[in-house]
Amino acid sequence: MELFADRAQAGELLAERLEDVRDPVVLALPRGGVAVALPIARRLGAPLDVLVTRKIGYPPTPELGVGAIAEGGEPVFDHTLLRRLGMTPESVADVVDKERRELARRVLAYRGDRPLPALEGREVIVVDDGLATGGTARAALRAVAAAKPARVTLAVPVGARETVGSLRQEADEVVVLRTPIDFRAVGQWYEHFDQLTDADVLELLDRARR
């Protein structure tokens, strides 16, 4: 299966699939989702902003996500995984508090005192650079849904098939370009998949405003 050159090219290809969405707000999950979202927002003539999310990690192995939280929303847990690990949401309360603080820091860094755009009654496109477990995307979609938009589309270049299927219950539409059978990690489907910094995110948002 052909790789995406980079996030920008993936965003261009996604934008072609989203041209029928009228007058949307585009919300990107930082950091990588912002680079995918910029070409989409430009093609649709739409405002671009970030929706900050944080993974809630399993304390002994923080890379293992047992849940996630998005700004404006409550923590969303993988209860099946928590039970398998012999844990409850209360077991990771300290992790949730830490991630809330980091989420607040990133919101301040990316948006300053500006609030999220008004979403009630609007078409909203939520963008990320790929879906592995889908925990942060699920938290983001639920936070957006709480703002009562008219319709929510999740747009990603690539995702694990099972994850994409499960997220169809969280959005009105899921637009995904590739769902490979041998999915192992998002980065394997890009030729260039550099880690972005906060400064990169701010530059991309500034380009969107210009």
Rank of each mutant, 00 (worst) to 15 (best):
42 R>D: 14
80 T>C: 04
208 A>I: 08
136 T>F: 03
161 R>A: 15
60 P>T: 09
8 A>V: 15
100 R>M: 04
57 G>L: 11
114 R>D: 15
134 G>S: 07
163 T>W: 07
107 V>C: 11
101 R>E: 15
13 L>A: 09
117 P>W: 11
142 R>A: 01
169 Q>L: 14
55 K>L: 05
157 P>K: 07
29 L>T: 04
41 A>Y: 13
29 L>Q: 04
206 D>W: 05
120 E>T: 14
166 S>A: 15
3 L>A: 05
183 F>V: 02
48 L>G: 07
113 D>M: 09
81 L>R: 06
31 R>I: 13
155 A>M: 11
59 P>G: 05
68 A>G: 06
95 V>W: 00
161 R>Y: 02
134 G>C: 08
51 L>Q: 05
194 D>Y: 10
181 I>H: 10
197 T>Y: 11
204 L>F: 13
26 V>P: 04
48 L>H: 05
205 L>D: 05
93 A>V: 01
149 P>F: 11
178 R>C: 00
64 L>R: 01
30 P>R: 09
190 Y>A: 08
113 D>T: 14
151 R>L: 08
13 L>Q: 15
69 I>R: 01
3 L>F: 09
19 E>C: 01
133 T>R: 08
141 L>G: 03
209 R>G: 12
100 R>F: 00
15 A>T: 10
91 S>E: 01
5 A>Y: 12
103 L>E: 12
174 V>Y: 07
6 D>W: 14
63 E>K: 01
84 R>S: 15
94 D>N: 09
210 R>H: 15
11 G>S: 04
154 L>Q: 02
163 T>I: 11
117 P>E: 09
96 V>D: 01
185 A>I: 02
32 G>L: 05
169 Q>T: 15
162 E>F: 00
203 E>L: 12
186 V>D: 08
59 P>C: 05
24 P>Q: 10
29 L>P: 06
124 V>D: 03
175 V>G: 08
16 E>N: 04
71 E>C: 03
180 P>V: 07
173 E>W: 00
63 E>T: 03
198 D>K: 01
126 V>S: 09
85 L>C: 10
187 G>Q: 06
18 L>R: 12
39 P>G: 06
48 L>D: 02
